[in-house]
Nucleic acid binder design. Structure first.
Lengths: 343, 343
DNA sequence: CGAGTTCGTCGATACGCATCGACGACGCGC
DNA sequence: GCGCGTCGTCGATGCGTATCGACGAACTCG
């Protein structure tokens, strides 16, 4: 691996270095015989262009910056599918992915753009009030947000439509004849952090509960751990005063423990109580029992984000993208919602 | 963000461009007043060096390539802690992380090295026979493997000491007076893929079971999903013919479902049967019930891998690193192993 | 007090590629 | 048969940084 240069390729192919470059970029016509000689020479040397030189001369890096937040306590809301989708989408466009953690805050963003480390940035886990958003908006490279802050500052956002998801859950419970709804919130830390989607779901469920005329309670905050979940289960049972109680659990990490806690109390979801979770279909299917859920596939969201990103990099390459792109959720009925009473 | 250059900094500071460079690298002495003027100018312009130019001239990128395998079916063995640790360790050394997925195979490696995209590579999820290992060994940049292939080809490897972990589990069961051991294997796909650690654990448990004179059965393959786990539970109960049965579960994904299945059958781990899992402590603690486990913290492994990597990048910077670096596991007793009978 | 050092700075160059302007070889129309 | 546009290629230049050799100044030591 002696690290060949385009000059080496040129020499072997018997052409000038610039011709080699034009073969690669296609920015000028090259005759078929010449092109072939050049390609052969490249193959023979297993030539790879030096990315640094390319970035310097061509002012583009073929790298996408990805800013992720690793949960402090390991609470990483299914981060992996996002990352995976972004990585493979980037590769499909001949780009690579540079990973930056969110705990660098705005400094990471400035580094990415200032050092010309990447051509564009995807930033995940956007908070309602996110100090990084204005910084990102001022960068010299396009930025796509996964998550919708209070003020996107002109940046493109992609996210699951949590408001719609909340409405769908409420509608499903209302349509199947429930007469009360309880929403299980999330940890105080998450709520405080302005963790976007939990807040939005709670708000939307509240509103839509009113629209459908269903009394609605929110249990919050709900910490992690057996005891906390057990307490929630008890609260649910206390509320279940003979009526048809529907529970909405916006956070997938809470669902399985809650199902276990209910089972321990001999309460069967789908018979004695109803439960709808917000989670990926995969989690909902593999649970025991499989629960009815409203899903947003991380893959859909990040795929759309990447489409937007590459459109920003080359606006001629497709149709205009919406500034705020909300992915529609989907309700899948499984076993945890009581059927409508037949009388 | 007009993208300033070191020349701009030099002009403002009233020095030459090379002086600015020497201030940054510290490779030549600079007087204190000059240094200060230069640093002030940098701060004033919020100057950031162009990474491409730096890579070109300085032949180093300050980037670490990370090759990960996203599980085909989402079976990503706690990948995130590895990635997180690697990312933060890289940042601590003023490096960034370029993420490459394993499905590019060796091509990804060649690209990383050939295009000078990074200074060193960490490759995870190494298989027993891994076609990428010889390729990696021939690269122009140092490579550290997380996982130990049959032939490391001279590369440095870091991994949990699975053999030791298996022995510890067997010892614990033997020491607490069990008279039979069952090992729950993993999916056929994983085994076939040569998924390193499962294979090694099975082998080591077998061997050490013999040493300790305990009859030992391996249940394999074990697929995912409720039914498969249920079948395993039934098999375990069938074997439990009055004796003291100890179960070793090498894969953390299998443990919780198995605990659930046992509970459903009114078998209480720690009273009627013993179970030791291989998993992170976090998983073991948060399970219901918390199970006795032998842990290897992903963070320990990836931290050591990064230490080795930076040592390879600068061998003068610390003590020599072992070619094969196995992290010692730790047994933590919780609730799922029956205590030694007191008679 | 002169020869040899070390210190601090500068100018020039190379790194590997993309791109621009130039230019010869053609093909076309009249 | 001559001007003109197009095609295909080349040489030269610039991108922003690191580094090397040089050089004056200050300092050391005999």
């Amino acid at each position: 691996m002696a690290a060949f240069t385009s000059k080496d390729v040129a020499r072997i192919a018997g052409v000038s270095q610039s011709t080699v470059s034009y073969v690669m970029t296609g920015k000028r016509p090259i005759s078929e015989p010449t092109r072939r000689r050049v390609l052969d020479a490249m193959a023979q040397l297993t030539y790879e262009p030096h990315s640094g030189a390319r970035a310097l001369a061509g002012r583009r890096t073929q790298v996408v910056g990805l800013v992720v937040r690793f949960g402090v306590g390991g609470e990483t809301f299914g981060l992996l599918p996002f990352i995976e989708t972004i990585a493979s989408s980037a590769r499909a466009h001949d780009h690579d992915v540079l990973l930056v953690t969110a705990d660098e805050g705005s400094a990471g963003l400035r580094r990415l753009a200032g050092r010309a480390l990447c051509d564009a940035i995807i930033m995940m886990d956007i908070e309602e009030q996110d100090e990084r958003v204005p910084v990102a908006a001022a960068l010299s490279v396009p930025v796509v947000l996964i998550g919708v802050p209070a003020d996107p500052a002109g940046l493109h956002c992609v996210d699951l439509d949590f408001e719609a998801a909340a409405r769908m859950a409420v509608d499903e419970l209302a349509d199947t004849g429930h007469d009360e709804i309880v929403v299980v919130g999330y940890t105080a830390a998450a709520m405080e952090r302005g963790l976007n989607f939990v807040v939005r779901v709670l708000r939307s469920v509240r509103e839509h509960g009113q629209v459908r005329g269903l009394p609605l309670t929110v249990i919050e905050p709900v910490e992690r751990g057996r005891e906390a979940i057990a307490k929630v289960a008890d609260q649910l049972l206390a509320r279940r005063t003979g009526g048809r109680l529907g529970v909405v659990v916006p956070h997938s990490d809470t669902i399985v423990p809650l199902l276990n806690a209910l089972r321990k109390r001999d309460v069967v979801p789908g018979r004695d109580i109803s439960l709808i979770g917000l989670s990926t279909d995969r989690e909902a299917e593999q649970s025991d029992p499989p629960y009815t859920n409203v899903s947003g596939e991380p893959r859909d969201v990040s795929r759309r984000a990447m489409e937007t990103l590459f459109w920003l990099l080359d606006p001629t390459s497709g149709v205009e993208r919406p500034a705020i792109d909300l992915v529609a959720p989907r309700l899948t009925r499984r076993t945890t919602v009581m059927p409508t009473p037949s009388n």
